[in-house]
Simulated assay, not measured.
Amino acid sequence: MTTSCIRTLFILVFILSAQLVLSQESFLFYLQPQLALNYNVTSSYSHNFTLSSRNFIYREDKFKLEGRNFDISHFSNFKTGVNTSFGAGLMYRFRKLFDNTRTNELRFTQQLNTTSRPMVVRYGHRWRTEQRFFPDVTVHRFRYRFTLDFPLEGEKVDINEAYLILNTEALLSVASSRGAQYDQRFTAALGWLLEEKVQLQAGLEYRLEDYTRNTHPVLFLNSSLILSL
């Protein structure tokens, strides 16, 4: 399948998704750009620094661009094998900048990641635990993500070539005096290797939040510029 066909498919999926979710009263649509910097300290130890902004595009049955939160995060990764790594990180989410009635969040994350590539397609499994600290409650979240990614031309991604990323993630959130919350996420993104250490990614993420009790559909238009040192 050529890159042009993939792009056309993305446009069709976007239109169909928008028609489906805009008809739901509780639907939210976000724009989420991100800037990431990867830095390899050694061959088995690396850092990741990320700045991310989440903005409303559609809510309360109308389109409008409005900031929701701004995130600063750091992650350290340790390779324990050819296809295995574990990591730990922290994030601070600024919410009060955009809404005085909301509180900021401090988050700690731990993860285990494994990958395999028997042929052209790479398979990835990621397990995460998170502790989300708010002034009035601490939320513990458990996550599992399965990912496929592969080049759209040839057997590997060369400069100025594209690749496709598909993943789904299941989440469970628990907190004292609150019932368990189950979420599911689905993501499709196109990536381009612009230069040897510069990547650009853009895609859609569809979330079903709290789907066992009161489902909230959420759509994200994501973009990432990834720089590696």
Rank of each mutant, 00 (worst) to 15 (best):
V82Y: 13
Y92V: 10
L90R: 04
F86I: 15
Y58I: 05
N167V: 09
N55D: 12
Y58Q: 08
L9R: 09
S44C: 07
Y211E: 06
F133G: 03
V157M: 06
Y30P: 02
F78T: 06
E155L: 09
V120H: 03
P33Y: 05
D99G: 03
D136K: 11
L22T: 05
F98Q: 07
F150L: 15
L65E: 03
T42N: 12
L221I: 09
N55Q: 12
E195W: 09
A162Q: 07
L172F: 02
R178S: 11
L31V: 07
L208I: 04
Y144R: 10
R102S: 13
Q201I: 13
L106T: 13
A18L: 15
I226E: 04
F14L: 08
L35E: 10
R107T: 11
L229N: 07
R102A: 13
M1D: 14
V218P: 00
R122H: 10
S177Y: 10
R213K: 14
H47N: 09
R102M: 11
R143D: 06
R7C: 11
R122L: 13
L9F: 14
A162V: 05
L221W: 07
P135S: 10
R126V: 08
D71R: 03
E60V: 00
E205N: 07
L172R: 02
R128H: 02
S17D: 04
L219H: 03
Q34M: 15
S76K: 04
S173Y: 03
D158Q: 10
L35C: 11
N160T: 13
E130D: 07
L35R: 06
S73I: 00
G154T: 04
E196A: 06
V198W: 08
E130A: 04
Y30V: 02
F94M: 10
L65C: 00
P33M: 05
H47T: 04
T80W: 09
R128T: 03
R132L: 14
D149S: 12
A18V: 10
A202H: 06
Y211Q: 03
V13A: 11
Y206P: 00
R128F: 02
L20T: 09
L106E: 14
